[in-house]
Design a protein around this nucleic acid. Structure first.
Lengths: 169, 169
DNA sequence: ACTTTAGGTCAGCCATCGTGACCTACCCTG
DNA sequence: CAGGGTAGGTCACGATGGCTGACCTAAAGT
């Protein structure tokens, strides 16, 4: 298995470095994503709800289809979560102006409050990590992660972190 | 650096930057973790099995307890996975030399082959991201992720990526 | 007008992870 | 050796969150 270490290839491509990166990614995500779990449990919600609320908050007016392509889950899975969020009064669905088939999603005031509360713990964790690592490290962090995501999503993530839903409206 | 002039304000701790980081983390993990799913499905395994196989491969002789503390799941959940891996002939359990209550876990030859196959796709993805971003970015990537994980796990991840099982916590 | 397609829903299945209780086997200390 | 603590396993059961398949409605294409 000791195949790569012989090479004079760039240091950061060694087997061991890649392994370490994978593990960091696993643990980083594990602890980051798990942070709001207690808060969610208190409201009978799960991570799926958090993800939906987060992206709706970030892209007010986003359609279900757009949300699906971000979350990469099926309509049905999202539908369940969305139904609960609507009946709980955290999200509203408005028929699209341009295309009335669409349901444009927005957070209610309550939904926004929840989103802020949930994300706050994560924001703090990330901010701490950013502060400790420094601005240059943050830039590297971004670049590597950007290279990790599928081509399709790079545009949305890379340049303009659009605060509202992209192109269509 | 490639810092966009959009942010005129001093720090990189702006709301927007943090949000972008969260989204990158989500998408990066989503695509990275999902990569081996087709391979797993073909063998009737799930991500849970991959995680177990990965960490056993990385820390041969790791005990069940240590594995639990890495994965942060319950005994029961891990037990199910482990039982299947053992009956499938991918993992063996050996009584600990020092403490015979322990079951030290190791991959069989078949298990190692599977591990390599599963991780290979991810390795390639990560290597590509590393190559594109450059060595400096990789260092930043590591630092930020390290700051993201809980205190407890930093030691294992930070300095020496210990090839054998680390000391107990 | 009729078909196609995008967006969305309903019903039901399955894998994973969780909790709580309880068990064996083993280690350590008095 | 007794007794308590620890490592690991097990059983029953429930919740979550994915999935497929069938189906609906509204718009678009021809």
């Amino acid at each position: 298995m000791a195949d790569l270490k012989s090479g004079v290839n760039p240091l950061f491509l060694r087997e061991e470095d890649l392994r370490q990166g994978m593990e960091l990614l696993f643990c980083g995500w594990r602890d980051f994503a798990g942070e709001p779990d207690p808060l969610l449990a208190r409201r009978q919600l799960g991570r799926a709800h958090h993800r939906a609320v987060y992206f709706i908050g970030r892209h007010p007016g986003i359609t279900v289809g757009e949300l699906l392509s971000i979350l990469k889950i099926t309509k049905q899975s999202l539908g369940r979560v969305l139904t609960q969020l609507v009946t709980d009064g955290l999200v509203v669905q408005l028929p699209g102006a341009r295309d009335r088939r669409q349901r444009c999603l927005k957070l209610t005031a309550t939904g926004e409050a929840l989103e802020r509360e949930l994300t706050e713990t994560q924001r703090q964790r990330l901010a701490r990590a950013y502060r400790t690592a420094g601005a240059e490290a943050v830039e590297g962090f971004r670049q590597v992660l950007l290279g990790l995501v599928d081509e399709r999503d790079r545009n949305r993530l890379a340049g303009a972190p659009a605060p509202q839903a992209p192109q269509r409206r």
